[in-house]
Amino acid sequence: MAKKEQKLICEEMPPWMITFSDVMTLMLTFFVLLVSMSQIDSRRKLVALGSIIGTFGWQDASYEVFSKTDTRRTVEPGPIDSGDLEPLKELKWENVDKDINFRSNRFVQILSINSSLLFPPGGIQLSDAGQALLKDFMPVFAQVQFPLLLAGHTTELRDELGNNYEPGDDTQTPDLSWKISLDRTLAVYSYLLEQGMRPEMLKVEAFGKYAPYYPRNTSENRAKNRRVDIVLDKRSLDAGERVRQIAPQPRNTPDTLDIDGFEFDLRPPAGLE
């Protein structure tokens, strides 16, 4: 009688695992083959790129990648809330484009006043017209909720000093243009304090001839660069207000404490208050 053949079965791996492994290997090979044969849809790529281009406003593209019609819905930031310099923008002055300039964005507002409106030619003391102009601005300055930065700007010494310019003035240390801008800024600062502005609501900086807003290639542009900027930055706070915001709130301590019907007196002994 022939002996029955014995089946060899690995005791460490169940029989179904061999079949399962073969199937997984075949599926992996199948998907690798699909990936190797696939191609990127150029249309989908263009749509994705068009969305990015339209969002950030590059060139003349829009959300619709195959159209140059501007379909963006960009919302410009509105004016800063009440308590800013916005009311000054609506006032009308003679030669407003040359003498006074108002620039603003979502957080910062800059009121530029030409030095010719505030000071006599080559002077550092406020003229009567300059004092009257700042006095007209005081109702707006007084209601501002954020500190104002007074920034003085000048131009080349030949333009500033005129006939008083002498060779060697440009080699002084510190630069004389910086000193002129500082003196003018301090004159405005002192006058605003006299009109009731709080010292902590004013800051002073002087830039001399080193931060021109207009190109210095013409005399007209250099004249526009002689200015005092009144800058309101909504991101800056009054120092006192900042301290009040970060200071811990005082806690009201009760005089007595009740625990399971027992009342304890928490008041300090007499003489220690």
Rank of each mutant, 00 (worst) to 15 (best):
L237K: 03
R251P: 00
S177Q: 02
L46Y: 12
E5R: 15
R244K: 15
P254Q: 03
A61T: 04
E64F: 08
M201K: 12
A129K: 13
V65F: 11
I124C: 04
R44T: 12
D81E: 14
P15V: 08
L161Q: 07
I100H: 02
P14E: 09
E76N: 14
G50M: 05
R267S: 11
K4V: 07
S42V: 14
D159W: 01
T55F: 11
R73Q: 15
N225I: 01
W16F: 14
G123V: 00
L232C: 00
D170P: 01
L232M: 11
T25Y: 09
Q245R: 13
Q172I: 10
R242Y: 09
I180V: 10
F56C: 11
K92L: 14
D136T: 08
F262K: 15
K135M: 06
N101S: 11
P87F: 04
M24V: 09
T155V: 04
D60I: 05
A206C: 09
G168H: 05
S62Y: 03
D183S: 13
S82I: 10
I246M: 12
L157N: 00
L34K: 13
R244F: 11
K234H: 13
L118H: 00
L237G: 01
P87I: 04
T19N: 09
T29I: 13
L111F: 09
V32G: 10
Y165A: 04
N101P: 06
R244D: 12
L157F: 05
A2M: 07
R216V: 06
P250R: 07
M37W: 13
A206D: 01
